[in-house]
């Protein structure tokens, strides 16, 4: 199982490196969204709950782009068949795809977070950074698991681009909620507040539960 996941993941990252299909689009989309928020909110700088909301929602929308593309290469180029013909555990596909999506989101944040600090964020990012990274990692994990599941559900449908956001947004409401509430005290004016433990715990539990659910049902999306 572990070597299969490693093989799939290596292929995934190589493909993304070659085509540069998802990650650059997600980064550009994030930055464009900050600009739109600037005009939409008519603010030069945001703090506290507004800042965390803008940050998390932008990340969510950028993630939707990546989720839409997640299984396209498999679907169009026969990767599903090739994988299904191999004598390997099918859940490896879920794990590899979720880890790949997690990596993509992390890379996007490496670019999007400084852009956010530069364009919109009021208080300096530096002191909040370690705690914020922790929040974002947990949020990424949740988005990656749910995103992979949703992408798997939608890939065979004709209306893929419509179904993905319609499914992903409600399912990710708890993640957005918990991540935004966790990040709020970190982005306040006059120094970062303490990390709210209960929200972090909820985020972690939600991630874990959905990982279990995805683990249980993902096989059924692959067989024919």
């Amino acid at each position: 199982m572990r070597s299969t996941v490693a093989t799939l993941l290596a292929k995934e990252l190589t493909l993304e490196w070659r085509t540069r299909e998802s990650v650059p689009a997600m980064v550009l989309f994030s930055i464009a969204t900050y600009v739109v928020f600037h005009f939409g909110l008519d603010r030069d700088r945001v703090t506290g709950d507004l800042a965390s909301g803008v940050l998390v929602v932008t990340l969510l929308f950028a993630a939707i782009l990546g989720i839409n593309r997640l299984f396209v290469a498999e679907h169009e180029q026969g990767g599903f068949d090739g994988f299904l013909l191999a004598p390997v555990d099918r859940t490896a596909m879920l794990v590899a795809k979720a880890v790949a999506l997690f990596c993509f989101l992390c890379i996007v944040e490496v670019f999007a977070l400084p852009a956010f600090a530069l364009l919109l964020l009021g208080p300096p990012l530096t002191q909040a950074l370690p705690a914020l990274v922790l929040v974002l990692l947990l949020a990424n994990a949740g988005i990656a698991v749910i995103g992979t599941l949703v992408a798997g559900l939608a890939i065979q449908t004709r209306a893929r681009d419509l179904i993905v956001p319609l499914l992903a947004l409600p399912l990710l409401v708890p993640v957005v909620l918990a991540a935004a509430r966790s990040a709020t005290p970190l982005l306040q004016d006059g120094g970062a507040g303490a990390l709210p433990g209960n929200w972090m715990a909820m985020l972690a539990i939600y991630d874990l539960l959905f990982a279990l659910i995805a683990f249980a049902v993902f096989d059924f999306l692959l067989e024919d």
């Binding site: 093989t7 190589t14 493909l15 180029q77 068949d81």
Partner: peptide
């Protein structure tokens, strides 16, 4: 269908399937 990833080379595709098998 060839069941090969278009952006990978033939060798990379075969290596990938070799690892799976």
């Amino acid at each position: 269908e060839a069941l090969l990833y278009r952006e990978l080379s033939g060798r990379e595709n075969l290596r990938f399937y070799a690892r799976l098998h």
